[in-house]
Simulated scan of single mutants.
Amino acid sequence: MPPVLETRGLTVRFGGHVAVDAVSCAFHAGTLTAIVGPNGAGKTTYFNLMSGQIPATSGDTLLEGEDISGLGAAGRAQRGIGRAFQITNLFPNLTVAENVRLAVQARGRGAASLFSLWSRHRDWIERADHYLELVNLSGVRDTQAAALPHGDKRKLEVAIMMALEPKVFMFDEPTAGMSVDEVPVILDLIRTLKRDGGKTILLVEHKMDVVRSLADRIVVLHNGKLVADGDPATVIASPVVQEAYLGQAPKREAAHG
């Protein structure tokens, strides 16, 4: 099947520094791809390029075969790219339910007439409550988002992204800053999305135990370049990853006999 999301020679330069260097990669439905690499490898910058947060110096981004390189973040979100950030990106002064309801409304099509407004508003509320239930936030639906603990803010961000029903789910270090008790909740949410079987999920994550438990495929960036791409066991064991990502000298195979 053709890829849902694809980059071709994607490059960005900041002055004389090449942060992402001609990265070509395709991402397919039904696959969770982990993008890993050492600090400064270009992982989040690559995410920013694909989601339209920053413009590319050169190269293209395609969504379902359509070149979306000229679109900014809002345009790409409307086309179906969902992005969750390292730092939560919410409306802090709105309630939990209002945050999700706005996402449901944004996903809706067509202008509401005076006669249909009430029924649509009721439908938006019901759908928002559905997503809040999925992330176990129903009990705090009327709480101001700013008052939530960090873990609940991350769950709310996932609920908002789910409400937008994107074609591509992008998680940038979803467990960053979370306590040990909070991490499993977010990972279970990602597993729920993955079980759908039709989602295209991209994950930037430093914790290799998280990567091993979730990823179908690992892409490794180093100094802005794509240096490895394949199934988790093969990529993690590869000499280039042992050296570039794990900071270890390549291991010699033990002799057998």
Rank of each mutant, 00 (worst) to 15 (best):
G9R: 14
G9H: 13
F14D: 08
G16R: 13
D21P: 02
S24L: 00
C25Y: 04
A34W: 07
N39Y: 04
N39V: 00
L49D: 04
L49I: 05
S51V: 15
Q53L: 15
S58T: 14
G59S: 09
T61F: 06
T61I: 13
T61Y: 09
E64P: 01
E66M: 13
E66L: 11
S69G: 12
S69M: 07
G70E: 12
G75F: 10
R76D: 09
R76E: 10
A77I: 06
A77F: 04
G80C: 11
I81N: 14
R83Q: 12
R83L: 10
A84V: 13
L90K: 12
V96A: 06
V96I: 07
V104H: 00
V104D: 02
A106E: 02
R107I: 01
R109F: 00
A111M: 04
A112S: 02
L117I: 00
W118M: 03
R122A: 10
D123Q: 12
I125Q: 13
I125M: 06
E126W: 04
L132N: 12
L137W: 04
S138H: 08
R141W: 08
R141D: 10
D142G: 02
D142W: 06
T143G: 02
D152Y: 05
A159T: 03
E165W: 01
P166L: 08
V168S: 06
V168N: 06
F171C: 09
E173Q: 11
E173N: 06
E173P: 07
M178Y: 10
S179Q: 10
S179F: 03
I186L: 10
I186P: 04
L187N: 09
D188P: 01
R191T: 08
R191M: 02
G197V: 02
K199R: 15
V204P: 10
V204R: 10
V204F: 12
E205N: 13
V210C: 06
A215C: 09
R217S: 06
D229A: 02
G230T: 01
G230M: 05
D231H: 06
D231C: 00
P232T: 07
P232W: 07
P232Q: 06
I236W: 00
I236F: 03
A237L: 01
P239S: 01
Q248T: 13
Q248K: 15
A249G: 10
R252Y: 03
E253K: 11
E253M: 08
A254G: 08
G257W: 13
